[in-house]
Design a protein around this nucleic acid. Sequence first.
DNA 1: CTGAAAGCGCTTACAG
DNA 2: CTGAAAGCGCTTACAG
Lengths: 335, 335
Amino acid sequence: MNKRPTILDVAARAGVSKSTVSLVLQNSKQVKEETREAVRAAMAEIGYVYNRAAAQMRSQSAGLVGLVINDLRNPFFTEFATVLQMTLAAKGYATVIANSDEDPELQSRLVGSMIEHGVSALVVSPTYGGCGTTFDQIERAGVPAIQVLRKTDARTGLFPFASFDYATGSALATRHLIEQGAKRIAFVGGIEGAEITEERKSGYLAEMARTGTDAIVFHGRSSRSFGVEITQALIDAQADAAVCFNDLVALGLHAGCTRAGRAIGTDIRIVGCDDIEDCALVWPQLSSVDCDIDGFARATADRLLAWMQEGDTPPPEHRAPVDLVVRASSTGQTP
Amino acid sequence: MNKRPTILDVAARAGVSKSTVSLVLQNSKQVKEETREAVRAAMAEIGYVYNRAAAQMRSQSAGLVGLVINDLRNPFFTEFATVLQMTLAAKGYATVIANSDEDPELQSRLVGSMIEHGVSALVVSPTYGGCGTTFDQIERAGVPAIQVLRKTDARTGLFPFASFDYATGSALATRHLIEQGAKRIAFVGGIEGAEITEERKSGYLAEMARTGTDAIVFHGRSSRSFGVEITQALIDAQADAAVCFNDLVALGLHAGCTRAGRAIGTDIRIVGCDDIEDCALVWPQLSSVDCDIDGFARATADRLLAWMQEGDTPPPEHRAPVDLVVRASSTGQTP
DNA sequence: CTGAAAGCGCTTACAG
DNA sequence: CTGAAAGCGCTTACAG
C-alpha cells in the first residue's frame, strides 16, 4: 500500500497551493466556488483522507469527546451513551466511550488517556468515592467536563452537574401508591449514603412523614439480581407496595414476586424508576418514573457543544423534570 | 491557563535532551534507570501530559481502535462493546465506539470519521445491506478490520469474520425440546434472508427434517416487542415450543405467554439464544443457547492486538462454540 | 482570492 | 547512553 496522499498531492492535482486546499477543508468562504469544486474533485480522484492528527496538532482541537460511564451495561446508561454519541456524531464529533465499572482507579486512568488523546470535552457519570484524583486531573488539563447523573465533585461551577429531579419522582410514586390504598410501602434498592440514593429516598420519606406512616427501607445494589434476592424480605415485612430505586431492582422484584406467587398490582404494588423499555414489555407492565433519557442526552450534547464552541458554561446544576407512568404493576388493572 | 508543557520543558527541567525524554516516554531500555527517574520526576513536577496527536503524526499510530456496532442498545452488543473496550484499555488502547443503528449510510460516515482519526484497527458488526461502500472505504485506507457476528463482505481474507457456531446452537435447542416431548416446535424471530437468521434457523430445520416434523416459522424483528406481538400467532398455530432467534424475542414471548395465561415450561416451552443476564432473572427462568460473549470479546481483542502489533492476520473465519443452558422455561421443572 | 513560510510537539535515524 | 537535526501533515498569520 502506498502512503496516503496529503494536501500537497491534492494541491498539485488541482493546480492550487496547499493553503487553498486547507481552506477548502475548513469550508472557508474565501475560496471561489469553482476552485472549491476543483479541489474536491482532486481529493476524490486521488483518494485523499483528512489527517486529523496533523490538524489537531496545529489547531489544538481533535473533534473528539470523551464519555466515561460508571456502568455501561446498565441499559439506562447504554441508552444515554448511545444517544449522546449519535447526537455528537451528527455534529462532526467522534466519541471515545469507556466503562469505569465503578472503579475510581480505572476511571482516573481512562480520563488520563482521553486527555492525552486531546478530547475537547468530557462527560462523566462518575464512580462513587475516589473521584478527587479524576476531577483534579481534568482541572489541571483545563478540559471542559460535565458531571451527569451523579455529583461527586462539589465544584459545580467548574464541573456543571446535570441530572433528573428524582426527589419529585419518588414523591409522585409514593403518593400514587398511597392513593391506590397501599398501607405498607417500602423503598427498595440503592446503596445507602450515595447521593443519588438519598435523593430518590428523600421524596419517599417526605411522603411517608406527611402521612404519618412508617418507612420501610431495604438498601442494596441497583440490579435485577438484588431485586430477586430481596423479595422474601419484603414479603416477611408484609410490605404491600414498593418504590424501587430503579427499574432493574423493580424488574427483579417483579420476577421474584411472580416466582413466590404474589399477585403484582394487588398483593404487592411496584413502581420502578427510569422507565426503561423493558417496563412496558413485562407482564404485568411495570409502573415507573419516566426520565426522558433520550431528551436528556440530546440536551447534554447541546450544552456541551455550546460550551466547547461558544464558551457558554452550562448552569452549575440542571434538573430535568420527571413524570410518573402508571401501569398495571401498581394498579392491578390489566388493560 | 498556561499552555501545556512539552517534552522540551521536561528536558530543561530534568537537564537532558528532548530525545531522552522521548525515549523515556516509550519505555526504551536504552535509558539509564537514574535518568529515567529524573525525567519522570520532572514530568510530575511540571504536570506534563503526553500529546498523542503529535506522536501519532510522527509515528502513524494513534493507540485508538474503532468499534462500529449495528445496534448498541441490544444488551448482547453492549456487553461485547464493554468487554472489548475494557480489554483494549488494559493494553493502552482507547476505543471510539459508535452505533450505526442499522443505517448503512451512517455506518459509512462513522467509519470515515474513525479513519480520519487514525484508528489502528476497526471492529465492525455491520448493518445488512449497503456495506459495500463501508468496506471499500476501509480497504482503501488500509486499516485492519474484522467483521464480527455478521458477515456482509465476502472477502474474509481481507476482513476476517468471527462469530459463534449458531447452527449447532439451534440444533441443540431443538433436539432438547424434542426430548422434552414437544410436538409442534416453532422458530421465532429474525429477519428472513439475513445470514445470521438463516444460520440459526438451519440447525432447527435440520432437526425438524431429521425427525420428520413440520417446521413452523415466524420471522420478524429481534426485539422484545416482536416477541410480545407474535405470542397470539403462536397460540393460534398450537405451537407447544419455540426456538427463538435471540433472548430478546424469547423474553418478549415469555411476557406474552404470562399475559395470555399459558404456563411456560409446560403449555409452551421456550428456548432463547445468547444467554444474556436477564435469562436467569425472569420467572420461570429462560433456557438459552449460551454464547460466551465476554470470552468472545476478549478473544477478539487479542486477535486484533496480534494483527495490529505483530501483523498476524486472523483466520478468515472463526466460530466460537456454544452451549445449551437448560432452565425451567423448557422443562417446566422449577428448582 | 491565493501563495510562501513558520511552526504545532513529537519520533526517528544518525553521530558521538 | 545522549544530543542535534529533520520531518510527520496540517493551520495560521502575513503578503500580495
